[in-house]
């Protein structure tokens, strides 16, 4: 579903973030992206999300070359990608339900559909009765559930999660990971950047290790370890 061919990215200030990287992620996969900070993980996500364009190489998403995409097609690419962040990125003045509804409003969904979809997705993430709470009235784990609900409500092909448990305690982290696994079982591809070694080691999923802008290790049911 995602294919990168010999992709390099050199920023305008001369920083080489990614060099000659090739990567395939298949539909339905669950993959961890690991590596020290500065290894190029964020750039890789930005390249898939078309926030940055590669200096060299090609990026394919769902059979489409995203480099050849017109600017007005980009929003439609992004609707097929659900993003989840370490800092949740919820709108503080909107309730949980409104934050989820916001993702639907943006895509021009009818209010009837919104009324139907929002409670369903909130129930799926385990926030059935918390739709009317503001982010500030919720725990970190609950806020992240809202973030996940917002990411999946538009039925994306892939969820890209950037350290989704980075701000959460171990128990809550596991609850969130179980939620991701549940979503993955329903067929959504998941690519997750993480530093949580115990999670990676326990879940035994594909591990893609980055270092200095290149892939140094790519294993099915891999582990988290310091690269030599």
């Amino acid at each position: 579903m995602i294919q990168l061919y010999n992709v390099s990215k050199v920023y305008e200030n001369g920083v080489k973030a990614v060099s000659d990287l090739s990567l395939h992620i298949k539909k339905g996969e669950f993959a961890f992206l690991v590596g020290p900070s500065g290894a190029g993980k964020s750039t890789l996500i930005k390249l898939i999300f078309r926030e940055e364009l590669p200096t060299r190489g090609q990026v394919m998403f769902n059979g489409k070359n995203i480099l050849r995409m017109k600017p007005r097609e980009v929003p439609h690419l992004r609707r097929k990608i659900g993003m989840v962040f370490q800092d949740f990125r919820l709108l503080p003045q909107k309730t949980a339900a409104e934050n989820v509804a916001f993702a639907l409003e943006i895509t021009g969904t009818s209010s009837r559909e919104i009324k139907r979809l929002v409670p369903a997705v909130l129930e799926q993430v385990g926030l059935k009765d918390k739709g009317d709470l503001l982010p500030a009235q919720m725990s970190g784990g609950e806020q992240q559930r809202v973030g996940i609900a917002r990411a999946i409500v538009n039925n994306p092909l892939i969820i890209i999660a950037d350290e989704p448990t980075g701000n959460l305690d171990p128990d809550t982290s596991w609850e969130i990971m179980n939620l991701f696994q549940d979503i993955n079982r329903r067929g959504t591809t998941i690519l997750m950047v993480t530093h949580a070694s115990d999670i990676v080691n326990t879940m035994k999923k594909r591990v893609i290790a980055l270092q200095n802008g290149g892939i140094v290790r790519d294993e099915e049911s891999g582990v988290y370890r310091r690269e030599p």
Binding site: F49, P71, R72, P75, R78, R79, M83, L91, F102
Partner: peptide, 16 residues
């Protein structure tokens, strides 16, 4: 600006 950033991530069109 924060809200705009979120809108872009969620795939809002430019005119929206």
């Amino acid at each position: 600006r924060r809200e705009i950033g979120i809108m872009k991530v969620l795939g809002a069109t430019n005119w929206f």
